[in-house]
């Protein structure tokens, strides 16, 4: 009886949205910072003014006020930079890894996390080639990858593609404004 009661009781927290790992972070790092053998986390602690500036630019700023760039190096030379961007949706959060090359252009984008509910929608967008449309974008370029696949996916996958667009917009703005 006790396990049954316990199971029923703790069910109170049903609302928590289960996160599903689509790509391991280590795999995303390896793909987006190819050849790197040393890594550094550069943390930018935003002043109130800069947090406000970022918010004005992309209608978002990190809740803890800290932006993190992961920098990959090989033999001391920078091979690229990576950001993990999280976007919350009514169906749970997604996490998107955005990798930049030395030239400041996007090298690649990986959706690393989704939820049990959104996983299939996200996978449909990936199968439609969503992330290939981000390659080469630089700060100031509008992503608009979702629009490219609109005709090939359903309404909910398209919605998720827009969320990935949003993550890339944030990553581009953060890179432009705060990566030194």
């Amino acid at each position: 009886m006790k396990p049954i009661v316990l199971s029923a009781v703790v069910a109170a927290l049903l609302h928590i949205t289960p996160v599903v790992v689509l790509v391991k972070r280590t795999d995303a790092v390896t793909r987006l910072l190819p050849g790197a053998d040393a890594f550094a986390a550069r943390e930018v602690h935003l002043s109130e003014a800069d947090a406000h500036r970022l918010h004005e630019t992309v209608d978002w700023s990190p809740e803890d006020g800290v932006l993190t760039f992961y920098i990959g190096r090989r033999g001391g030379a920078v091979v690229g930079t990576l950001e993990f961007q999280r976007v919350d949706t009514p169906h749970g959060p997604i996490e998107v890894a955005v990798g930049f090359g030395q030239d400041g252009a996007i090298r690649g984008v990986e959706v690393t996390k989704a939820t049990a509910e959104t996983r299939h929608w996200v996978q449909e967008t990936l199968a439609a080639g969503l992330t290939s449309h981000y390659q080469g974008l630089k700060a100031g370029d509008p992503p608009g990858a979702a629009a490219h696949i609109r005709a090939r996916v359903g309404a909910l996958p398209f919605y998720m593609a827009e969320q990935v667009d949003k993550a890339v917009v944030r990553a581009l703005a953060v890179y432009r404004l705060f990566y030194r």
């Binding site: 280590t26 890594f39 550094a40 943390e43 602690h45 002043s47 803890d64 006020g65």
Partner: peptide
């Protein structure tokens, strides 16, 4: 709990720190 509750106030000027991480730290 919101991380800000244990974080200091935002700095007056944006500050940058850097630390080494290993690939396995991402995992």
């Amino acid at each position: 709990a919101t991380p800000e509750m244990t974080m200091p106030m935002p700095p007056e000027r944006t500050m940058v720190t850097e630390r080494d991480v290993r690939l396995k730290d991402f995992a």
